[in-house]
């Protein structure tokens, strides 16, 4: 393929840990083939070179948490034909969205001696709060297989095959013993979107929801099940308030629980 006709790929970073864009570099077997199939227009973690926009595909990592970033994402959207968010920060605000249920001024004063040096917003919000998003990959971090599927589908001009069912489906398909049923281990698998391959149950651990809520999550049912298994309500709130705390289903249920009594109201 001639260089001029190769699609342009850009990777943008907002508030995040870099783990999702690292997942692209972790496609060791595919990386050079991907690099051959696209022109990398902007990917500062990997290259100094910058190619002028517009871009055919922008991958966006991280959440919007500063006034400057709220502006920057608008410019990126304008110059991107397709914009895909990668990971829990970009799709749900990330763990830094815990500030959304706290006082950010207090947060800043706990961490920094001079909060006045900082430029930060009171909230950490997902990219789609600010601009239209064409597709999203869940996960903290994203799954390498899903990323390769997304890139391959985009290059082929088809929709990526990204399941929206629960972790339980993958767990059964993998033949992993159900940790909730067999050992009464608290597990968010029933309400969490598949994609990781049921990693936590495969190491005898309950799912902690790092792919965020699945498309038809029964949150009150999940809460009842956890409470019946002996999980204190404050711990249930904490379970929902981690890497996808601002995702609507998790947020609504954690707010309902936190408001529902002295036990449930314990911070955070």
């Amino acid at each position: 393929m001639a260089a001029a006709t190769k699609p342009k790929l850009a990777v943008w970073k907002f508030a995040s840990c870099d783990g999702c864009q690292l997942t692209l570099l972790n496609c060791e077997d595919e990386l050079l083939a991907i690099a051959d199939a696209v022109t990398i227009a902007y990917f500062p973690e990997a290259t100094r070179a910058v190619v002028e926009g517009p871009c055919d595909l922008s991958l966006v990592e991280g959440s919007i948490s500063t006034p400057e970033d709220a502006e920057r994402i608008q410019h990126i959207r304008e110059q991107s034909t397709l914009l895909v968010t990668i990971g829990a920060c970009a799709t749900a605000g990330g763990i830094q969205a815990l500030r959304n249920v706290a006082d950010v001024a207090e947060y800043a004063s706990i961490v920094y001696a001079h909060p006045e040096y900082l430029s930060t917003l009171a909230t950490s919000t997902p990219i789609r709060t600010h601009v239209f998003v064409d597709a999203e990959l869940r996960g903290c971090p994203i799954d390498k297989g899903q990323l390769v599927e997304l890139l391959a589908a985009t290059l082929a001009g088809r929709a990526p095959r990204i399941p929206t069912y629960s972790v339980c489906v993958q767990c059964k398909a993998r033949g992993v013993t159900c940790v909730a049923v067999a050992h009464s281990t608290p597990c968010l698998g029933p309400v969490t979107q598949a994609g990781c391959g049921a990693l936590c149950p495969s190491v005898a651990r309950g799912c902690y929801g790092c792919f965020g809520p699945q498309d038809s999550a029964n949150m009150t049912g999940m809460t009842e099940r956890l409470v019946a298994a002996g999980v204190p309500r404050a711990d249930v709130v904490r379970l929902y308030r981690t890497f996808n705390a601002h995702a609507p289903a998790f947020r609504t249920e954690s707010e309902r629980l936190a408001a529902s009594g002295p036990q449930g109201g314990r911070q955070p």
Binding site: Y107, V111, Y112, L118, R238, P268
Partner: peptide, 13 residues
């Protein structure tokens, strides 16, 4: 951007 880890760790188990 600052993410305030030390702040939101307070109150966690």
């Amino acid at each position: 951007p600052p993410r305030f880890y030390e702040a939101f760790l307070r109150g966690r188990r």
